[in-house]
Nucleic acid binder design. Sequence first.
DNA 1: CGGGTTTGTCATGCT
DNA 2: ACAGCATGACAAACC
Length: 670
Amino acid sequence: MLSLKKYLTEGLLQFTILLSLIGVRVDVDTYLTSQLPPLREIILGPSSAYTQTQFHNLRNTLDGYGIHPKSIDLDNYFTARRLLSQVRALDRFQVPTTEVNAWLVHRDPEGSVSGSQPSTGLALESSSGLQDVTGPDNGVRESESEQGFSEDLEDLGAVAPPVSGDLTKEFPADISSLTEAVPSESEPPGLQNNLLSPLLTGTESPFDLEQQWQDLMSIMEMQAMEVNTSTSEILYNAPPGDPLSTNYSLAPNTPINQNVSLHQASLGGCSQDFSIFSPEVESLPVASSSTLLPLVPSNSTSLNSTFGSTNLAGLFFPPQLNGTANDTVGPDLPDPLGGLLDEAMLDEISLMDLAIEEGFNSVQASQLEEEFDSDSGLSLDSSHSPSSLSSSEGSSSSSSSSSSSSSASSSASSSFSEEGAVGYSSDSETLDLEEAEGAVGYQPEYSKFCRMSYQDPSQLSCLPYLEHVGHNHTYNMAPSALDSADLPPPSTLKKGSKEKQADFLDKQMSRDEHRARAMKIPFTNDKIINLPVEEFNELLSKYQLSEAQLSLIRDIRRRGKNKMAAQNCRKRKLDTILNLERDVEDLQRDKARLLREKVEFLRSLRQMKQKVQSLYQEVFGRLRDENGRPYSPSQYALQYAGDGSVLLIPRTLADQQARRQERKPKDRRK
DNA sequence: CGGGTTTGTCATGCT
DNA sequence: ACAGCATGACAAACC
C-alpha cells in the first residue's frame, strides 16, 4: 500500500505539474503509450529526473549533453529516436509508387484497336515530344508502363473485342493523337495542337516529377478513402476479373450514336482507385448510350511528365477549351474534381491558413489539431530526455541542457556538502542557557562554517529558480557567531543581557548545536555530521561518552544528514519542475512546427488537385469524335478504370457509379 | 494577523 | 542490522 501510495502521489504530482504547466492540451496518453521513456517514467514510475541520487558520485557526471545522467539508457534513447522519426513520418502521406501514363489510341476502320502494339497504332505522330520529356529518370517507369500497357491491350483483346469491334465498325477512325489534342497553354483553346508538348517541357520543371505525381496519387488515394465522393470503386464492384470487361459488359451492345473516335488516353499502371475523372453531374442530360469507351493506352506518353511540367501552373483552370466546339465543352464543364476539392479539405486548408495568419499560438494550434485529425502523436516528441534530442532541428534543446544544469548543480552540491556540513547550534528550548554557555569541547579547527552548496550566494546566483530565496533562516551558526557566543564571560553579563545573548544564540545556533553544547559534546556538529562513518566511529572511540551523549551525537548526525537530504530533495523537485517546463515549451514548439508543415502540405495538395482538374479539362476538351467534334461534357465524362486506363463513359453511367460510391464508403466507415 | 515561503525535522521506505 | 538516502508531512520561522 505504501508503495502504491507513493506511486500514485508521485505520479499525480507530476501529472498535475505537467498539466498546470501546459496551457494547451497535451495528450498524455500518447506519451504513456509511446515508448518514449522519460515522461512515462516521470508520470508513472521512478523519474529519471526525480530519482534518488548518489550525490557523492554526481561530481563525475556528464556535462549534461545527450543523455540524462540519471537515466543512461541507450536502448530507450535510440528506440525513442527511431519511434519519434516514425511517428513524424506519419504526418506525411505514404505515397504509393504508382504512376500514370497517358495513352493515345485511335481506331482504324478495320475494327481493331490500333495501337495494340505500342510502337504501331498507338504511336503518336508527335510522340517524340512525349518521349523527350520522359527523361532518363523515367526510363524504368516507362518500361513498366509499357508493360502495363501491353497487359491492358491484352485485356482489351481478350475481353473487349466485340466492343471494340462494334466501335470500330461503327466509327470511322479519327486518328488524332492525344498530343495533337492538347494545346499548349498559350494557344487559343481548341486548336489542334500538341496536347502534351506544353505539358512536357520538363526542362522547366522545378519539381521532382515523380514526387509530384506521387503526391497526386496520394491525394487521389486519400480522397477515395476519406472523402468518398469519388466513384472510384465502381470498377471494384465487378466480379473478379478484368475490370475492363466488366465495364464493357455494362453496355455491351449499346451503340454510341456518334463515331467516337477516341484519342484516348489512359493512365496505365495505376492500380489505385482512380476515378477522379468521374464527374459528379447528376442533372445532365442523359445520353441514351451507356457505352463505355475504353481509352486504349498508347505508348510511352507519360502523365508523369505532364504533371511535372511547370506549365501546369499556368493551366489552373484554363480558359475554355475547345473553342471550336461550341456545343460542348464550355464553362459548364463539370468539375471532375468535385470530390477531391471537397469542402472538408478546403475547410482544413482554410483553418490552417487562419492559424498561420494568427500566428499559431498554442491554444489555436491545439484546437486546429483537434479539428483535423488525430496524428497528434507527433507531439510525441517528448523532449524530456535523450529522446528529445532526436527532435530534429533546433528544438532539441531541453533535456540535455536541463540535465546538464541538474547534474552540474547536483555535483556541486555534493562537493560542497562533503567539504563541510551545516552548522548546528543547541536547542535553546531544551537546554539551560547557562549550561550551554559553559559547555566545552569545541575545537576551533572544526568550527568553520559550512553551508550547503545552494545556500552559497554565489551558487544561488547561478540558479535562477533560487534567486527568490531571500529568507534568512540563520539556524546555521557563523564562525563569528560561535566565537562571540563564547567570548562574553557569563559572569560579566547581567540577566537581561544574558537573555538577549540567549536570543541571539538561539538565532545563530541550530537546535542541535545547542544540544551538543548542553551535552558537552567534545567535537563539532560539522564533524559529527560529515565525517565518514569509519572516521566518525573512530572519533567516538577516542572519547568517553555517556549514553546520552552518544545518542545525541547519533541524532545530530542523522538530522544533519537528513537536513542535507531534504535540501537536495527540494532542489531536485525544482529541477524536475523546470525540466517539465522546458519540455512543455519544446513540445509546443514542435507542435507548432508540425502544424505549419501540415498547412504547407495541404496547400500543395490543393495545388495538385487544381492541376488534376486542369488536366482533366485539357484532355477532355481535346477529345474528338469521328467527326472531329468535341464531346459534350454533359454527356460524357472521363473515368479512370481500376487497371489504370481511362474511359470515356456516358455521364449517366458515371452518375450511377458515383451514387453507388457515395453509399458504399459510408457503410465502410462504420 | 493571515497567508505564502523556506527550512528543519520526523517517519518511513528503500538500498 | 546498520548507515544512509529519498521523500512526504508537519511545524516553526520568516516575510
